[in-house]
Amino acid sequence: MTRKTSAREVTDALKDVDFPAGKDELIDAARKAGASRDAVAALRGIPPESYANREEVARSVRVDPASDLGTSPAQRGRQARAGGKPGQSQHLRDAPKPPVQEELDRERP
């Protein structure tokens, strides 16, 4: 189930955590930091492992794939078509920017 939060919101709630940290520590820290109910619920859905840093947490938490990853619709389409590693979420698959998007990005000041 996708949560109504973003990976950024979840990791921001964990800014004061000393890593490595376990799932229960992360949930407690998020509550103490005043994280939203959705962010805490998203943390409850992660596997009960030890996490080395906030990036590992962000990759494990279930959020809307387009919430804050900065991917375009074309990149999300490519991610959907591309096969990934077994168990890898679609939104974490490599999807380089289309050539047109790269050109548009270069033209911006």
Rank of each mutant, 00 (worst) to 15 (best):
H91M: 07
A80S: 13
P20Y: 00
R106W: 13
Q101I: 14
K85T: 10
K15S: 09
R59K: 14
A74Y: 13
R93H: 09
A35W: 02
A21S: 01
A52K: 10
G83T: 10
D38I: 05
L104K: 14
D12R: 12
P99E: 06
S89A: 14
Q75A: 15
E49A: 10
D68S: 05
V57W: 08
T11F: 00
E49Q: 12
A80W: 13
D24R: 14
P48V: 07
Q79H: 09
D12Y: 09
R78W: 10
L92Y: 08
I46P: 03
D64F: 08
A41L: 14
R37E: 11
E55M: 12
T5D: 05
A41P: 04
E25K: 11
V10H: 05
E102L: 13
R106F: 13
P96L: 01
R78C: 06
P99W: 06
P65C: 03
A35L: 04
Q88G: 07
K15L: 01
S36H: 02
F19V: 00
E55H: 12
R54V: 05
E56D: 10
K97C: 08
P98K: 08
K15V: 07
A29K: 02
Q79N: 08
S60K: 13
V17I: 07
A30R: 02
Y51A: 00
R31W: 05
A95G: 04
A33L: 05
F19Y: 11
D24K: 15
R59H: 10
Q75K: 15
T2D: 08
S36C: 03
D38G: 09
V10T: 06
P20K: 02
S50D: 06
R59L: 09
D28A: 15
D28V: 08
P48A: 13
D64K: 13
A52Y: 04
R37H: 07
F19N: 00
A95Q: 03
A42E: 06
P99C: 03
T2E: 12
E55R: 13
R44P: 00
A35F: 04
A29S: 09
R62Y: 11
R78F: 12
R44D: 08
A39V: 10
P47N: 05
R81Y: 11
S50A: 09
D16G: 00
G34L: 08
E56P: 03
Q79D: 05
K32F: 05
A30I: 04
G84A: 04
D12P: 00
E9D: 11
L26A: 05
A13R: 01
P99I: 07
A82W: 09
D28C: 01
D68G: 04
D64S: 08
R44T: 12
G77A: 15
V100C: 06
A13E: 01
Y51S: 02
F19K: 02
T11Q: 02
S89C: 06
P47R: 10
D24Y: 09
D28L: 08
Q90P: 04
E25L: 05
P86M: 00
L43K: 01
G83P: 02
A29W: 02
H91C: 11
D105G: 08
V40A: 06
S60R: 14
R76W: 08
R54D: 01
V17R: 01
D105T: 09
G70L: 03
A13N: 03
V40I: 15
L43C: 01
G22S: 02
G70E: 04
V17Q: 01
P48S: 14
E107Q: 15
D68M: 06
D64I: 09
M1L: 13
H91F: 12
P20Q: 01
